[in-house]
Nucleic acid binder design. Structure first.
Lengths: 206, 206
DNA sequence: CAACAAACAGTCAAGCCTGTCTGTTTTGTC
DNA sequence: GACAAAACAGACAGGCTTGACTGTTTGTTG
């Protein structure tokens, strides 16, 4: 029988990828406390030995997953932003895009890590900086997509508020899925944003 | 030696209270995954036997803690609202009050339960309705404190958005404590709210 | 092709968590 | 005071998790 020959680098890369994706899937489906290394290896279809070869400890696996996840989130955000329509309903579409991201499975996984990091120093040291990066990227994307002029006073804060708002909506969505409520809130928010970001609008009094 | 005689009802009540508070404290300090029944009993200074007498299973303990926590949160909100100053900076003070609540230890505990509930059906069945109650109470309090007229279109959504915003800010605060950023955002948001909720403001175009 | 290193597989022990169990003390009731 | 019931105490077993360990296969290199 002929066995296909695969270089080591490739084998290793694929295996690590499988494990990281399985880790994220476990976080989404079973949460942080339900994500055990055995479960991850089973889910990935990887023997426990192989898993421990690539990630000697659970920390190694999880910290790598944190980095992986922030990569994926950044990419998803950029892709979603690229597919945004132009024209009238642009602002509303941007909000929808952001809200979609903050209710997606990758966000659920990130949320698990985020909350777990609160009481885990090692995890926090990894999650903190990376989440900050994703946050900044989201801010930049939102700014771009909205065509907002950050040099104007208050604009920066409004865009940040927008991101914090969708994060709050995403959190609420995790247990009670009320898309209708979210839609109404975002409709209203879009109007507020349009009014405040409009270049022709008079600058607000101090 | 003289032993003070304590009625059973009282003993039982005190013991349960101690255990529930210890549970919340463990959630705050060690997170959901770090909150084991043994740790709770140690923290409460209660023997494991006594713990299992009052709460036969971990579910019983946790579900009772969920109810306890929603009680505490509701009370804290009411107290904070009662201490709100009148006058000029009222709106900003309301936002501060809400933001304070959503960065408090009780919120951290609730967040742990909230996130854990996402992947735990039994917990979700308990957390869902109670969190909704707290949410509604917060909404009512915010509405009251802001003197907002919910019958006007859009007002309800703005108040809800405010609550979702502070929830998002609270989540962000759990790992990176940037009070400065939060302050700026709330400053800006207070202005927006004042402009939108002012009864004299012209109704917005549809 | 020979020797070495990386990748992979599976077993095992130590530790923790949960909940059951038996036994003791305190309280309520007759 | 005696008896029942509630409250309290602590030991124990079963299951799960983690990481160390030994052994096997596959790729690489001279």
């Amino acid at each position: 029988m002929t066995t296909t020959r695969v270089p080591q680098g490739e084998r290793s890369r694929v295996m690590r990828q499988r494990l990281l994706e399985a880790t994220v899937e476990c976080l989404v489906e079973h949460g942080w406390s339900g994500t055990s290394t055995t479960l991850v290896s089973q889910r990935a279809g990887v023997s426990r030995g192989a898993q421990l070869h690539h990630f000697p400890s659970k920390s190694d696996l999880v910290l790598a997953a944190v980095a992986h996840l922030s990569e994926v989130r950044g990419q998803e955000l950029r892709v979603a932003a690229a597919g945004l329509p132009e024209g009238e309903r642009r602002t509303r579409a941007v909000l929808e895009m952001l809200a979609d991201h903050f209710t997606s499975p990758v966000f659920a996984a990130a949320l698990e890590l985020w909350v777990a990091a609160r009481t885990d120093a090692e995890l926090r040291a990894a999650v903190g900086p990376l989440e900050q990066r994703v946050g900044r990227e989201a801010h930049r994307i939102a700014l771009d997509a909205l065509g907002a002029d950050e040099s104007r006073p208050g604009v920066r804060e409004l865009v940040q508020a927008t991101l914090d708002l969708v994060r709050g909506l995403g959190l609420a969505d995790t247990i009670s899925d009320d898309a209708a409520r979210r839609r109404r809130i975002l409709d209203r928010w879009a109007r507020t944003l349009d009014a405040a970001l409009d270049p022709d609008a008079a600058a607000e009094a101090p």
